[in-house]
Structures are given as structure tokens and as C-alpha cells.
Amino acid sequence: MSLVEVDEAFKTFPSRQRGGDPVRALRGVSLRVEAGETLAVIGESGSGKSTLGRAVLRLLDLDSGSVRLDGVDLASLSPKELRAKRADMQIVFQEPYESLNPRMSIGAIVAEPLQIHRSDLGSTEIRTRVHEALERVGLTGNTAARLPGELSGGQQQRVGVARAIISQPKFVVLDEPTSSLDLSIRAQILALLAEIQQDLGLAYLFVSHDMHTVEKVSDRIAVMYLGEIVETAPTLDLFRSPQHAYTRTLLSARLSADPREKHAYKAFQGDTSVRDAVPAGEQG
């Protein structure tokens, strides 16, 4: 049994434009995440990767298919049981500032999962753990008194990480956790996430559009395209011998920071390059 098991997940959203076709965000997605590993889900906009990240946490309900954590089907849980289960599964968002309540102090934000799930802890114990969590993500204890707006983007994302790990989850969805950050900050956050994973034995589902990032952090990669996983492979294998034509297109679109490695972009029939050349109303 794997830690996370997704089977035949389907999800369709009504069209945003009047009279448009419904958006089929997930079209039969199945995946496994083992305890302690990082599975990256890579795809471009409209691939359904963010929908998948939320469906795995049951932040949205699937049309059909199942998600199991520790063998427990999340759809079978009552609202109360599901809330309790959320201590084991957490999420870090792409937008660090937007994901923090602007009216709450950093301390209150990080303390919240404990207040929800650990009613057995006294306020002194909660405070100690909040300070530990903040130090764990490289922030000083006195950050607790500040408001989200007073921190830099990198610091805000560290708060997001502290909040995600304080309830000691087994599984964390990382939804593009570094894509809104500057390059040097990005490297620090990735290193922090890797360190935390080793210490706590966490499993990550790393949702990303960036091949460079995914290459560095993942054990395995699942490539999503138009609501389907077209290829799943160990990271090294995927880069060495991509099997699906779309994976090859994605790899060829990477721009190396070394000018000696010239890229040669190869478009792939039926991919975004073609969609891109058709007015949005005709896409589908």
C-alpha cells in the first residue's frame, strides 16, 4: 500500500465563458506517492496539475475516482473525520502572501493547525512549538509578533512551510512553492524543503511548470498534459530517455543558463504550440 493512492480521478469544471465547452481538468488520473518520496507533477497551464494537487487533499470533490491516504478513502470520511485527517496532509501555496491571513500575526498563523488539531496542548506548549517551527524554517522567534505584510516573499513562504509542517503531516502538496520567488530565494526554499523532508520523512507532491526545479527536487516525475498523465518515470530516466512526445517537447523548451548548451525547441503535434495559434474560443 502506498501512502497516497489516486485512482481514475475525473473532474470537469463548467466553462468560464458563456456557451463555452466545459473544462475537463482531470481525465482519468492515477498515481501513487510512497512515504518519504517526492513525486513531481509537471505540466503547463491548463494541464490540470493544480486541480490534481487540490483533489488529492480533497479541497475539491472529484466527479469520479478515488483518493486514499494511508488506505483510507477520503470521500468516505464525514466532514468531521476529514477535518481531523487534515493534520496528516498539508499544502504550501504558490502565492506566499495571499496564503497568509493579512490580519493575523505570524505566530497566530503558525499556531492555528495546533489549535485545531491539538486541543490537548496548553498555550505555553503551543507557543514553544510555534517558536521551534519558525526556527526550523530559518526564522527567528520574534518574527511571531509581525504581520505577513511586513515580511519579504521568501520569509512569507517560510511561514507557509512552518504552518504546513507544525501538525507533523505525512504528506504535503507543494503547489508551485517557489515560482513567484526570486532565483536566489528559490534555491534557499528548495534546500529548506529538502532538509525538512529528510528530517521528518515527509512525502511531497511537487506541482510545478518548471523543469529546472523539478529536476533538482524530485525522485519521480509525472508529466501532465490536458488532464492526463502521459508519462511517469524516475527523474533520471525521464531526462535521459523521455518516452512521450510531449515530454520531449517540454525538455526541448528548457532554456539552459549555459550559453554553450544551445536549445532547439521542437514543437509537438497537438500541443500548446498549436492551441496557441488558435483563438481561445476555439480551444478545447
Binding site: L59, R86, F93, E98, S99, P102, E112, I116, H117, S167
Partner: peptide
């Protein structure tokens, strides 16, 4: 629809 509300839901808030 804000992210921090989604974060609170993901956290298990009632």
C-alpha cells in the same frame, strides 16, 4: 476564493 481561506480549510478549520 482567497488563498488564505483555502489554506485554513486545508488545515482542517471548522
Amino acid at each position: 476564493e482567497s488563498r488564505f481561506m483555502e489554506a485554513a480549510t486545508a488545515m482542517g478549520a471548522t
